[in-house]
């Protein structure tokens, strides 16, 4: 019926490429109409570059690892130390730069765990419905009812304070939001005729949930995950501030604020610059999240 196979495949590959390029172009043109989300993208891009090249950018990389030099303690911002030094003589700029790594790591690890648990449970609950749904959603409600900080306290009380336990503790409460989000999405996606269509084609539940439903929920998941990046960083900093997260001498923004807290009146720069870094990251992710929401909404129509 058709032309020779090889010719056709090369041709269709080209078609696929053209279509993809076209779609990326359209998505970009929509995104670029919002100045704020472009600013957000620039901010996040900057964060990633800083995180990746931290050892190169930081003027005193050894300070981030905790090199102490009391002779330089508590110096005000200067050309040599643009953000000043802390009470132990470490360059704050270098520590803020390395803190970016911790913050992003925190966000990625927590959200990866939370999304994989939450999305799977949400998909199953929404698709199966009935008793399965009731059981999963009640468990979710129970986890939701516990404040994340309290849960973290419990986890850390059972173990010991560390960055990794803090991440597990946050993820343990964070997945509930994804379970709820996805369950709701599934309930509405399920109403579409294409679900019934694939059932009539003979598709099983695995195909329907992961191949048909999940791709339609990727939009909301992406938007929420982007917005959540900022909040996870915020909560992680909060735990570190309480001494429940990263421990000295790790260059963690929350921890740096905690150590600078006692000296805010005298050495304001110790707590201020890490604080600004947190605000910068949260704002960046929020702007991108909002921008993505607009783009993805339009795509789905």
């Amino acid at each position: 019926m058709s032309t020779d196979t090889t010719g056709a495949t090369i041709d269709t590959d080209q078609l696929a490429k053209d279509e993809r390029r076209e779609r990326i172009k359209r998505a970009w043109s929509r995104l670029s109409q919002s100045t704020l989300s472009l600013v957000g993208f620039a901010m996040i891009g900057l964060l990633f570059i800083i995180a990746i090249f931290a050892p190169v950018i930081a003027p005193y990389p050894e300070d981030a690892a905790g090199a102490i030099d009391f002779s330089r303690a508590s110096q005000a911002p200067s050309l040599e130390h643009p953000m000043g030094t802390d009470t132990e003589g470490r360059d704050i700029l270098s520590r803020v730069i390395f803190g970016t790594r911790i913050a992003l790591l925190m966000g990625f690890v927590v959200l990866s765990i939370a999304i994989s648990i939450g999305v799977t449970l949400g998909l199953i609950a929404g698709y199966m419905g009935g008793k399965t749904n009731a059981v999963i959603m009640r468990i979710t409600d129970i986890f939701l009812a516990i404040p994340p900080t309290l849960l973290a306290l419990a986890v850390i009380a059972a173990t010991r304070p560390s960055l990794w336990y803090a991440m597990i503790a946050i993820a343990a409460s964070w997945w509930t939001w994804y379970a709820r989000l996805i369950q709701g999405e599934v309930l509405s996606i399920k109403e579409n005729e294409f679900i019934e269509a694939s059932r009539s084609l003979g598709a099983g539940w695995f195909h329907i949930t992961f191949r048909e439903i999940l791709p339609n929920a990727i939009g909301p998941i992406t938007v929420k995950a982007t917005l959540d990046m900022g909040f996870v960083i915020l909560v992680g900093a909060g735990l570190a501030f309480l001494g429940l997260g990263a421990q000295e001498p790790t260059a963690d923004w929350g921890l740096m604020i905690a150590t600078g807290r006692a000296h805010v009146r005298t050495y304001w720069w110790i707590a201020t610059f890490p604080g600004l870094a947190i605000s910068f990251a949260v704002l960046g992710f929020n702007l991108v999240g909002d921008g993505l929401r607009d783009v993805l909404d339009v795509e789905v129509e």
């Binding site: 579409n192 005729e193 294409f194 019934e196 269509a197 694939s198 009539s200 084609l201 003979g202 099983g204 048909e212 791709p215 339609n216 990727i218 789905v300 129509e301």
Partner: peptide, 21 residues
């Protein structure tokens, strides 16, 4: 499942019966 191959359906609303993704 095997039998379903022999019997198919065309749905009313083409915007809803094709997976948009």
């Amino acid at each position: 499942k095997k039998q379903r191959k022999d019997m198919q359906m065309v749905f009313q609303d083409p915007s809803s019966s094709l997976n948009p993704r």
